[in-house]
């Protein structure tokens, strides 16, 4: 799995093709695409800004990937011969990403106000169900 954080628009179908093209051992691919909703808490959103810590993001995403490989027995890339491992690995990666990867969202509203999004307890709890100790208090 390649780990990339980029500003540029990407083509999800092309990314999948790059992973599975030419391979016959892959039986399933699960992808997740997050989209920015038009409102937050009932207020119209003008923009969403994502701040991150580049050096740590890369290190943390590689740790997340290594952890997923070990747990779900994935080799070579994060694609799987069977669908259950693919679904589980995708859910695990997203839970891990949301509670560990150093990203912070700032919402700007149509009324001119801006706020940093609060961390949700549910994200840490979701990671907890994988038996992962949540290092963030």
């Amino acid at each position: 799995m390649a780990v990339r954080v980029q500003r540029e628009v990407f083509d999800a179908a092309a990314e999948v093709q790059a992973l599975v093209g030419g391979r016959t051992d892959v039986g399933s691919v699960v992808t997740f695409t997050g989209l920015v909703r038009g409102d937050a808490g009932g207020r119209a959103l003008r923009s969403l800004t994502l701040e991150h810590y580049p050096d740590m993001t890369e290190a943390e995403l590689l740790r997340i990937e290594a952890e997923a490989r070990e747990r779900f027995g994935l080799a070579g890339s994060l694609v799987s011969p069977h669908r259950q491992a693919a679904f589980d690995a995708a859910a695990f990666l997203m839970d891990y990403l949301k509670s560990r990867a150093p990203f912070w969202k700032k919402e700007a509203f149509e009324d001119g106000t801006e706020t940093w999004v609060d961390a949700r307890e549910t994200d840490a709890a979701a990671l907890g169900r994988w038996g992962v100790p949540v290092t963030q208090k």
């Binding site: 740590m56 949301k98 990867a101 999004v117």
Partner: peptide, 29 residues
Amino acid sequence: AALDHVHVKPGASLAGAREIAFFPPVTGG
């Protein structure tokens, strides 16, 4: 806090550390 790009708790030792980062709970994904 993160110490040289790894999440740490307040009791973590600074011995040998180079870069310390402080930030709110993460909200990515």
